[in-house]
Design a protein around this nucleic acid. Sequence first.
DNA 1: GTGAAAGCGCTAACAT
DNA 2: ATGTTAGCGCTTTCAC
Lengths: 362, 362
Amino acid sequence: MTDDLRSAGAPTLEDVARAAGVSRATVSRVVNGVRNVDPVIQEAVRRAVSVTGYTPNRAARSLVTRRADAIALVVSGAGVEPGAAEESEDTTESGDGSSFTAQVLADPFFGRVVTGVVNYLRPRGMHPVLMFAESSRSREEVVAYLRQGSADGALVVSTHAEDPLPALIAEAGLAAVLFARPARPVPVSYVDLAHQDGARLAAEHLLGRGCRRTATISGPLDVPAGQARLTGFRDTMARHGHPYIPVVEGQFTQESGEAAMERLLAEHPDLDGVFAANDLMALGACHVLREHGRSVPGDVAVVGFDDSSAALACRPPLTTVRQPVEGMAAEMTRLLLDRLARPDGPVTSVIFEPELVVRGSA
Amino acid sequence: MTDDLRSAGAPTLEDVARAAGVSRATVSRVVNGVRNVDPVIQEAVRRAVSVTGYTPNRAARSLVTRRADAIALVVSGAGVEPGAAEESEDTTESGDGSSFTAQVLADPFFGRVVTGVVNYLRPRGMHPVLMFAESSRSREEVVAYLRQGSADGALVVSTHAEDPLPALIAEAGLAAVLFARPARPVPVSYVDLAHQDGARLAAEHLLGRGCRRTATISGPLDVPAGQARLTGFRDTMARHGHPYIPVVEGQFTQESGEAAMERLLAEHPDLDGVFAANDLMALGACHVLREHGRSVPGDVAVVGFDDSSAALACRPPLTTVRQPVEGMAAEMTRLLLDRLARPDGPVTSVIFEPELVVRGSA
DNA sequence: GTGAAAGCGCTAACAT
DNA sequence: ATGTTAGCGCTTTCAC
């Protein structure tokens, strides 16, 4: 507690070394847990560390280790076509940006991803930096951030299949792992869900409870997940002797689910089962069904997808296909850290199996 | 594009300087937009920068500027009392940790905070690092992270009033701004909502539509917001000649809202209006009301609080009190950045006014 | 207006 | 097993 120890600013290695009567190198070894240090000295150094209140300076360490001990968690949005539209995009950037982020983050799905990422990162002394990439400018910023060495790699969660970010990162030779398979092949690892299998579970459940006239509200057909869920549902139904399944395309929103259900009901008033490609649309469908005097699941059984918070907000609570988002996010993080450890390792993909959660709606 | 420019790793200031035929210092000035640089040289440097593909190394810059250009966005949870319980906490850490994060992040509120923070930070070249502080160990980690200089300050969103983190940060002399007033006074700036005013809006709306027998489902009474919303509601009702308002305490969860509504209905079968201290509880209340054959808003009008996504998931959509979360988060960020610019500035608080959003439920 | 030089705090050879 | 030394890439006085 002598004055010269706390002279200016935070204590440095030098201060600790002086207090312990050893060299900076030795203190560094102790702090970093490198062996080959006499237990007695080790103890002396530890004492000096706590006396001085020393904390290693991250920037200095990063400068020499060339590791930031941070990764970028980027939520990547719709890509604007290169060319004409690009210019106007910059003008409206702030407006677009905020509505984009607000929209994406309002979805609890995002929170689940963060949970999985943080829980894997934390015990390893690493931290996630949040970034958004919804315009070409912001995409450049993400790449620059990584090139600066501010983060060691990126975890990319795209909201849009045509997202150009993965390719940009790959071209720059930076490390990344994606959540969900990119629409166009990119030499980058990813985790994804066996969407078809999930849809199959939904179909089998509906068939199992006796539904014979089922319809489906699909997701946007230009995104792989939307497409796969529809295909999986149709295939299973066909395999069980139901070659024709009415489909209305939704946009993964509650509102689109309501509109789709209205149409379905108008065209097929006798249906007895509905598979919605996500919970929000299923929730909307339930509302419409009730308004039309149909009970759920009595008259019409409804199955959702995701097991999001909407599933529990619904009355009755939704039977749905659960996507193990937290586990997928953790695996995604593991893949990235693996890659950082062995930069020339193979590009891989890990596909998770969904699980049917039976509640009240079907 | 000569070989020696791309010899090893990323190009440095030195590389750019050589390519432009100037000194490192000059390149640094140009890159950082410091004036006193000949326009001609400036142009030459810029060209060299793009030719070499130079990106400044953040660690090196941080080391000398002593700024990380990052802030910690910490979600801080229930504090375990120091002492006995502390030990067992560490043992179960991983289990507790993940359920804590999962629980908090499932709430779309968190996404709105992130939106506000990121939108303010981004144009200023700063980035948020996500952290959780639900155990004493993790709280130490947050403090250490800040002391390391990995982040310039912290934005703290507490889920619990007795959160010890703000005090820890203040004691360490670190910069922080809180979302919501701490239960015990701490010399730290914060933003908050005029909860009483929000409750007043709800009360006046209920009175205005003719409700004469209203009840309320309060939040947990040990958190300031829960307390204030109840007080505001009661006071307004009393001022309008309704000195007695039935109250059942909830926990801000849908389930607790359902239980509370059941009790309220059992004890006051003739009620015609309910104010729930948040939307989730209001949603639960609506379900229970319908199950008991009461129409909303026909028989019973329901008003929620927050304007969260639950408000729209409800049928009819909830009339609710909107908290401008994004704006509050942006202001919180502004306060922190102000503080970083003038470390000896005053500790302040900014209180936001809520707004009534009238939808179908009341 | 521009360059030379001195570190920021740390790690990692290398020497002892 | 420990100390010495040389930078990591950048900003910033201080001369010129």
